[in-house]
């Protein structure tokens, strides 16, 4: 049900772009104005959200320790999972952000009772997530050629590596296939596994469908319904100089592609997609496990009512005296 809502929402968006361009001919709106607006919303919204998080302090020092603390010098501490230095935290965050360390932790390969090795199920989620995010990054890298003049060599290098299969199948990038497979998996697991279905909201499906839509249209304009790539770059570069030229003769597929991408950009700051920036601020991961060595300050700390020793002694004076314990006031 939740998946259907999201599917219709994305389908509706596609229809809007299709009729906007094919029926009404509002090419400039879809090629220029909406992307401009989406980019603005993305950047401003993202900064707004991060600043909003940043305005709330981290009152307590709460890293989740996943390894041995640094205590006695002869006990080997886990410098990354229970970081004792800034470098450790950087390494921990890098592993988390680049390799999805925590998802990978899921379960160990184990020898089961029937003496066969099982590869525990949830590594698949790690793999799916990792493939999706890395593919997305590389695809963004590839797209940067449309926004840069000249294009730096390492961007071309990344693209060449990604396109290594093109010797056999033209116009196909490894990441295109990978991201489609990963997104399909991420969607299917939400539908197939009852417990993931239970926790999935329409917004979870919406993000997946939106991404799928962008990718599918992207692959299509590169294979089946080719567009004049030079015209697209002229348009993109034109946007930097605030003098965009909408190329003639590009089919609606291209407009749907950039419209969905624009929606995705604009949706980003208001959704769970903020997990990207969010991970950097996660206090269970980005703090050093040194809270007994360095005092953490809570900026809104306030005095609280306590039961002082004097009050305590007053209340129990006779009892204390009775067993011969020392008193402050006899």
């Amino acid at each position: 049900m939740n998946a259907l809502y999201a599917f219709f929402a994305v389908a509706l968006l596609m229809l809007v772009a299709f009729f906007g361009v094919w029926g009404l001919g509002w090419n400039t709106l879809f090629a220029v104005m909406i992307p401009y607006a989406a980019l603005a919303i993305f950047i401003i919204g993202l900064i707004y959200r991060v600043v909003k998080w940043a305005r709330a302090p981290v009152p307590f020092h709460i890293p989740t320790t996943c390894g041995q603390q640094k205590s006695l010098p002869w006990i080997k501490s886990d410098r990354i999972e229970s970081p004792s230095s800034t470098m450790g935290v950087v390494a921990r965050m890098a592993m988390e952000i680049l390799l999805f360390r925590s998802l990978f932790r899921n379960d160990k390969v184990q020898l089961e009772d029937k003496k066969r090795v099982t590869f525990q199920g949830n590594r698949v989620l790690w793999l799916g997530g990792l493939v999706f995010h890395w593919s997305l990054l590389i695809i963004l890298f590839r797209h940067s050629r449309l926004f840069m003049q000249p294009v730096p060599d390492f961007m071309i290098f990344v693209r060449d590596i990604d396109g290594i299969l093109q010797g056999l199948i033209p116009a196909v990038f490894i990441t295109d296939i990978a991201i489609l497979m990963a997104l399909t998996y991420l969607f299917l697991r939400r539908v197939v596994f009852p417990q993931v279905r239970y926790i999935s909201l329409p917004s979870d499906y919406f993000a997946l469908f939106l991404l799928l839509g962008v990718v599918i249209l992207g692959v299509l304009v590169k294979t089946a319904w080719k567009v004049d790539i030079e015209g697209v770059k002229v348009l993109a570069m034109g946007m930097f100089t605030f003098n965009p030229v909408v190329p003639e003769g590009i089919g609606p597929a291209f407009y749907i592609h950039i419209f969905l991408a624009s929606v995705l950009l604009a949706y980003f700051p208001f959704s769970k997609l903020m997990h990207g920036p969010g991970i950097f601020l996660s206090p269970t991961r980005n703090l050093i496990n040194n809270s007994r060595a360095v005092r953490h300050i809570n900026p809104w700390d306030y005095p609280v009512k306590v039961h002082t020793y004097e009050e305590w002694e007053d209340e129990f004076r006779e009892a204390i005296r009775g067993v011969g314990l020392p008193l402050e006031k006899e």
């Binding site: 940067s144 926004f147 840069m148 003049q149 000249p150």
Partner: peptide
């Protein structure tokens, strides 16, 4: 980044 690199090269408005 794309804006800076393009602006720096001075070819931002060039077309083929």
């Amino acid at each position: 980044f794309p804006i800076w690199i393009s602006a720096a090269s001075g070819t931002i408005g060039d077309v083929p």
